[in-house]
Design a protein around this nucleic acid. Structure first.
Lengths: 262, 262
DNA sequence: CGTACCTTTGACGGCTGTCAAAGGAAGTGG
DNA sequence: CCACTTCCTTTGACAGCCGTCAAAGGTACG
């Protein structure tokens, strides 16, 4: 069985997972295939069917705004699960596509239901996952609505740096960043022209340099100041639920659930 | 026992719920108390402890942007569950407060775990709920990033009208709307001054009139055009999972999940 | 070697924020 | 029932960030 370093690691960040849980998670990563750049994982309006786990490469979900523009909703990095937001809908309200070449595991939305049925711990871990993905979205909205393009770009680069750093050691002097200026504009809701001006200014001021497929962060501390960054929302800490899950496993569940006592 | 028309109705929109499921849901609404306007349900940074179901009145979750401004993240209407986004975190990343006087039911985050453990149907229904709340957020972000203030205001009023209409019959000529212009600005990320200008223009053009605590929608169809509104994201349709849930209840689960069967 | 996409730069305009001040409307205490 | 206070609404003047349009230069890829 191919181990899944990223996704299982992500899920076990929340609680220690048992052998059964790991086995269940492993089933989501049985079918893994490579995916070219621009490969569409699902199209807008398509019936909900499969979910994905990104094993390598970057991906995103996108919406057209009806005025010829596109807005990136979420940026997905290796280890991220793709489609959890939408698996209870009938049809997709977005498109998902690869940003760079990589590989993805595919499984059905019904497998999610099976996992929720089989393991309360994993069900709660899935809630934790969806909550953290939504926290990224919320933070992005706050920044895009209230901050200048300069802060937005700095914030996004730093956020991505921190997300990547959870997966592997990242050299700030050469961080992978396969995002064109046009795409960066679609992530932040800014025009490519203005993205370019902003990047030029950030480079002039010695904050960062964006190259074709990587970014140079001269000084992470300086970037944090530029971005006015508060990383609370990236926390993996889950509190107070582990004990409850343990109680449930020990059979204290039935009485507690029947009258919700204690 | 006080019945919970809104929340149980909301949850049963997704699938037909059994008696056990309804009983479990009922436990979330045992402790109900009135809440004044501006009552804080939780403060920023507080430890996660309770969740709420709004029985009457409107509420919201808010974030400070660090520059003295406030951004409303979600607007909560009667029947909405408050805190599902964050219940797996250690501390709240937002504040929740009542916008108008009303009443709320209170329960603990551990009760959510108990429900997830006790009923796969309800667990999936909770995923559906969180997904729909997130769809509201996503749509708001798209509109705020790419549309004019005029479209934003129209869009928000129409969205709220449609959400309210799911709960009860709403007279477009006198829709409850206890939202000040300042608050509307905090929802859309616009200054109160510009909100005022936009409302004045919309009234001049006969689209809508906002009064202190209600809105007059002269013509919903006209408003829909102004807002360029597509209501796909408000859909309650859940497809393909009901049959899977039924199979699980009938014990067909074990084979599908291989050996982890219960 | 050509084509397509990405990056860069300049000029111009508009939507929206900020500042400031005055005019209601609602609630409170006397 | 009346003064007072507070918050909300309204309006004007001005500035600035960012979008649009346009065109040229770079870079990868077939």
């Amino acid at each position: 069985m191919t181990p899944s370093p990223y996704f299982q690691a992500a899920m076990s960040r929340y609680f220690a997972l048992g052998d059964d849980d790991c086995r269940l998670l492993g089933q989501l990563e049985r079918r893994t295939a490579s995916a070219d750049k621009d490969r569409v994982l699902w199209a807008l309006g398509a019936r909900i069917q499969n979910l994905f786990i990104l094993q390598s490469g970057w991906a995103c979900t996108v919406r057209d705004t009806g005025e010829g523009e596109r807005q990136i909703i979420e940026l997905l990095l290796p280890g991220d699960i793709v489609g959890l937001r939408e698996f209870t809908f009938r049809r997709h309200g977005s498109e998902a596509r690869m940003i760079s070449a990589g590989s993805v595991s595919t499984f059905t939305h019904q497998q999610i239901v099976d996992i929720v049925a089989a393991s309360t711990s994993l069900a709660v871990a899935l809630f934790a996952t969806i909550g953290r993905q939504e926290a990224l979205l919320t933070e992005r909205m706050l920044v895009t609505l209230h901050r200048s393009a300069r802060v937005q770009v700095s914030h996004f680069v730093l956020e991505t740096y921190l997300r990547l750093s959870k997966l592997q050691s990242v050299d700030p002097g050469r961080m992978p960043f396969p995002i064109s200026q046009r795409l960066l504009g679609q992530i932040l809701g800014l025009s490519p022209v203005h993205i370019n001006r902003t990047l030029t200014a950030l480079e002039r001021d010695g904050v960062l340099e964006k190259h074709r497929a990587h970014v140079v962060i001269h000084d992470p501390g300086r970037l944090r100041d530029e971005a006015d960054f508060d990383d609370d929302y990236l926390s993996d800490r889950v509190d107070g639920l582990s004990t409850r899950l343990a109680e449930l496993r020990e059979g204290a569940a039935s009485s507690a659930v029947s009258q919700s006592g204690s």
